[in-house]
């Protein structure tokens, strides 16, 4: 499989504190890969360096061989990387479908058109994306009244709008009911399969991780301590040390 994303010795320090310390890994095409680790391990920092929200102190990020280190998020997005956030960042003053239309407007480079009516633009296309995440019934509701789980699904729809090759999802199921988590991740897995895109996600719920991820990376105190299949990771002694033991305890850690 071809390599989509490669991180080389990524490092981020805040006032001497090393949040991420020399992390290297890669994500391959069509792969659903999880990045796990206890709270404060540096997962979000890592993500933010990959998508440009943070500039790394050292190290490089390559997207399909092109160096993207330190590029602003919008450029990385234009290069085919989608992103969802731990705390959803939808547009509260717009309707559900308008949130999707906004992404489509940006994708079609119509941001600086002054003459068109935005709410008519790409409506059909947007509906299509909403259908993918089963939100088409709520298309015209104000985004601000949406349930949390629906917001997460909306974010996913938005992130798919520019047909990314790679999707980075930070805690995609955080705050959702367990059944809804499985449902959402199943949806993501389906999309990965149907569209052949790669997904890198962080997650607390180990059920979700071990049920869906093809590969898992474990981050602890800023360092990558494991990178492999579910089985490899599960049996890695360093990982067990971090999570205080074997496979059954993973669930406990997930709830913590």
């Amino acid at each position: 499989m071809t390599e989509i994303l490669r991180a080389e010795r990524l490092r981020k320090s805040y006032d001497g504190f090393l949040a991420v310390d020399g992390v290297s890994f890669s994500v391959r095409a069509g792969e659903l890969k999880a990045l796990i680790g206890p709270n404060g391990a540096g997962k979000s920092t890592c993500f933010n360096m990959l998508t440009g929200q943070l500039k790394p102190t050292a190290g490089e990020v390559y997207l399909r061989g092109t160096r993207i280190t330190g590029k602003p998020p919008r450029e990385i997005w234009r290069m085919g990387v989608g992103r969802t956030f731990q705390i959803t960042g939808t547009y509260r003053s717009m309707s559900v479908i308008e949130n999707v239309q906004m992404a489509l407007i940006s994708h079609h480079r119509r941001l600086f058109s002054f003459g068109l009516r935005a709410w008519k633009l790409y409506r059909e296309e947007a509906l299509e994306f909403l259908r993918t995440v089963s939100l088409e019934d709520q298309a015209d509701r104000p985004c601000s009244v949406l349930a949390y789980g629906d917001l997460k699904r909306l974010e996913l729809a938005i992130a798919l709008c520019h047909r990314p090759r790679l999707l980075l999802m930070d805690e995609p199921t955080a705050g959702m009911a367990p059944s809804a988590r499985i449902e959402l991740m199943q949806l993501v897995a389906d999309i990965v399969r149907d569209q052949g895109l790669s997904v890198l996600f962080t997650e607390h719920d180990m059920d979700v991780v071990f049920a869906h991820a093809h590969h898992i990376m474990v981050l602890n105190r800023g360092k990558l301590i494991a990178d492999g299949t579910a089985e490899e990771v599960r049996s890695d002694p360093k990982v067990q040390e971090v999570y205080l033991g074997g496979g059954t305890l993973f669930k406990e850690a997930g709830r913590a």
Partner: peptide, 13 residues
Amino acid sequence: SPFGYALRAGRDS
């Protein structure tokens, strides 16, 4: 227009 929406998007998030 799309520009107005982009402006609002920048304000909302």
